[in-house]
Write a protein that binds this DNA or RNA. Structure first.
Length: 480
RNA sequence: GCCUCCGUGGUCUAGUGGCCUAGGACACCGCCCUCUCAAGGCGGCAACACGGGUUCGAAUCCCGUCGGAGGUGCCA
């Protein structure tokens, strides 16, 4: 039997990292099993739908490298893959369920229910619909519906007994039917709720394995009841724990947690994000940490899934990203870094050399500008920077060092790193000073920064002779 | 409140009764290298939530407590 999995997001905004992880695992499982990965859009809540969200979801999934075999804008034999385009499919199924006794039409108004719920809450009890409309006869129901009265269709959950389901990760989960409410399956607007649509579509689309967030863990027994009423074969369930921002809050936009898009925009590499996300709640079983998507498709196994929620750790993502940056081909790095060099106003310099210096120091691309912008404009700095205990320098030493450096640098006509290096080193050796005593102040004098990507020689080279001397003279002039 | 689930260092995790004086990674700290930073090398800090059982033996099995999460919508 061919494995068929699906990722079924709602177009209510961007694809958050938890969603991305669910999509990733669903995709990986399908690939690992040589199965089919399907994308389905669950847009039955018209009110919550955000314009443009569908396109953003497509873009994120594509950007992550998760190719789907069936779905909107790809096609497939089980389409359409957008629920509002399947709307005609649900009502007949719902009425079939009514015939089978698994559901019933309900005419109670939203307002009435809300009041009842509030009253219940006030008494400190859990609200449960009392099946009031279950007693309405078929004939009366038909009459009222024909007369245009609004109605919904509710699931008819048995009053007694147990409902259960089996989850690959969490095992057998069982609840008393008495604790379950008759949830709405078909809304008054004629569209199904998630509770119904997911069951119908998973069945109709031949989904064999359902991977989804653990927020559905407690309603899954009810879905199984539906499968049983229909006499349909149940899928294999795998509920995934939540991705948290800290111990008690899940990742959320409101707290400023980044989406996949945000991360990409900030200069995280998609390969690094995917790799990191894969390891958030899943382990290959050994100590290996670096995986390409094809490698993940190879080694992914549901056995490595973790049951407890995991906290998204930006520090570790940042580290992993810096590893990916370091390992990428130089030309690729140069191409990716160039826009950031432009943003920092240093694109007129020898960017190839700058990129060589920067590649090993770039954790995230958006950190490039603040690291290199001093090359564009000389920052103001405190002369205290000349004082460095280990380098054995202070403003007095700096005065000598800078004078020496200047005397050497003005004579250089062939402004290359090797030449600058040799000339400076020869002069330092002749002067009897330590390397650091000259090089540290020089670097400070031409960069204005305590730390820079590269030493005095690299910085001088990048700046060019004219600018180096200009900065040097200016710094000498302001020495106390 | 009720129902369900979860609980290894600050974080991601390995571990499925003896291989565990609990392994790896991130972060943090120290040292080395070094013209700064980064990288690299070496070293360090730091966990089985708690309490009872079961067993010759428990992070691993059972019970309870505590803590956290999810659900309790004509949201998904």
């Amino acid at each position: 039997m061919t494995v068929r999995t699906r990722f079924a997001p709602s177009p209510t905004g961007y694809l958050h990292l938890g969603g991305l992880r669910t999509a990733l695992y669903t995709y990986l499982f399908a690939r690992k099993m040589g199965g089919v990965f399907i994308l389905r859009i669950e847009d039955t809540d018209q009110e919550r739908e955000v314009p443009g969200a569908i396109d953003r979801i497509y873009a994120s999934i594509r950007e992550a490298g998760l190719t789907y075999d069936e779905g909107p804008n790809v096609g497939g034999d089980y389409g359409p893959y957008i629920q509002t385009q399947r709307r005609h499919l649900y009502a007949p199924k719902a009425w079939e369920l009514v015939e089978r006794g698994g559901a019933y039409p309900c005419f109670c108004t939203k307002e009435w229910l809300e009041d009842a719920r509030k009253a219940c809450e006030a008494r400190g009890e859990t609200f449960k619909y009392d099946k009031h409309c279950l007693g309405i006869s078929k004939e009366e129901a038909k009459r009222r519906i024909d007369a245009g009265e609004p109605y919904v269709i509710r699931q008819n959950v048995p009053l007694t007994g147990k409902a259960s389901f089996d989850d690959v990760l969490f095992g057998h989960i069982e609840v008393d039917c008495s604790t379950l409410d008759d949830s709405v399956l078909m809304k008054a607007d004629g569209l199904p709720t998630y509770n119904f649509a997911n069951v119908v579509d998973d069945h109709l689309m031949g989904i064999t394995h359902v991977l989804r967030g653990s927020e559905y863990l407690s309603s899954s027994p009810k879905y199984n009841l539906l499968y049983e009423s229909f006499g349909w074969e149940k899928p294999v369930y795998v509920h995934l724990p939540v991705v948290m921002r800290d111990a008690s809050h899940k990742l959320s936009k409101r707290f400023g947690d980044p989406s996949f898009e945000d991360l990409l925009q900030r200069g995280f590499l998609r390969e690094a994000i995917v790799n990191f996300i894969a390891l958030l709640g899943w382990s290959p079983g050994d100590d290996r940490e670096f995986f390409t998507l094809p490698e993940l498709e190879e080694v992914f196994d549901l056995k490595g899934l973790n049951k407890s929620p995991s906290i998204f750790d930006m520090d570790k993502l940042t580290w992993m990203n810096s590893e990916y940056v370091r390992r990428m081909p130089f030309e690729d790095y140069l191409a990716m870094a160039t826009p950031w060099f432009e943003a920092a106003g240093v694109a007129h310099l020898d960017t190839r050399r700058l990129a060589e210096l920067m590649q090993g120091r770039t954790e995230v691309l958006d950190r490039i500008p603040p690291m290199v912008d001093f090359l564009a404009t000389m920052p103001d700095f405190d002369v205290a920077l000349y004082t460095h205990k280990k380098m054995k320098t202070d403003p007095q030493v700096a005065a000598q060092a800078l004078a020496l450096a200047k005397s050497v640098l003005v004579t250089i006509s062939d402004w290359r790193e090797e030449v600058i290096h040799e000339s400076l080193m020869a002069a330092i050796a002749a002067s009897g000073m330590k390397n650091g005593q000259v090089l540290w102040p020089l670097r400070i004098a031409i960069s204005g920064r305590e730390s820079t990507p590269g030493g005095a020689i690299e910085i001088a080279y990048l700046l060019g002779k004219e600018e180096t001397l200009r900065r040097l003279e200016r710094s000498i002039a302001v020495l106390p």
